[in-house]
Amino acid sequence: MDNRPPELPGWMTGEEVYIPGKDKSAFVNKSILSVLGLLSRIKTQDTKAASKYMPHAVFMVFGTLLLVVLLSFSRGFTFPMVALVYLLVLLAFMDGRAIRSILKVSLIAALGSALVLLPAALNGSAFTAVLITGKVFAGITAVNLLSHSAKWNDISAAFKRFLVPDLFIFVFDITVKYIYMLGDYLLNMLYALKLRSVGVNRNKYASLSGIGGNLFLRSSEMAGDMYGAMECRGFTGKYRAVKRFRISPADLLFIGANLAIVIAFIYLGRVKK
């Protein structure tokens, strides 16, 4: 390699006179926004500070699963109403941005299920349609509350306490990590495409498929690297989560609330009212 600085060609020494043509770039812009949203969400989750007013993730995961199961088994309106009131009380402890985000997802899911059940409602099964829609709203709100209030790694550590197989927990942890890493990489590629799309791009989809291919190659390379690193560090398939915790007043309060929910289910949930 010749290490002398090169001489620049004529066109590079003058100023470029360029007026771009009109082109649509909404797809790339929307993709950037959605990837950015996902990354911020994961990052916010990860940097969340532990609060002494928050129950431990083990109890939150258990409480959420319990509530979803009880909601599924309930036959009348009363128990879902009680569950919704309970969830609204929990929601009140979240910050405004989280409340907005949780309710947005829950409302969209409930609206979707209401649309699907609309023919049944018009054919005389209005009770069932409204009941199922309410249950969907409550179930999604419960799961979203969990995802907004506990860190991903605390949730996966909680799985370990429920005797979920190591492999599942490992795959869960790695999936979250790689969604973030590949998401960040994808964001940079979309930025690069946006920056270089200075005019009319007739082959937008070819560029996007190039990005997809590049992402796939990158993920396969990263998977290979991780496999090598795991081998080097003596990974045997066992995934250990060694987080000790002491039961706090917040945990006791949460356990009490869940016991009240179970009692409410026993008295109200099994009856079709």
């Binding site: 470029e16 360029y18 007026i19 771009p20 043509g21 009109k22 082109d23 649509k24 770039s25 812009n29 990489y185 940079n188 590629m189 930025y191 690069a192 495409l193 946006k194 920056l195 270089r196 799309s197 200075v198 005019g199 560029s207 190039g210 990005i211 590049n214 990158r218």
Partner: peptide
């Protein structure tokens, strides 16, 4: 910057070389 003509003009005038060159290259 939502207007493609304005954005295109700025992006032609300002060239950006990313830290991760991999992320910048997407053609065959």
């Amino acid at each position: 910057m939502q207007k493609p003509v304005f954005a295109g003009k700025l992006h032609q005038k300002v060239g950006f070389v990313f830290q991760q060159s991999d992320a910048q290259l997407f053609c065959p």
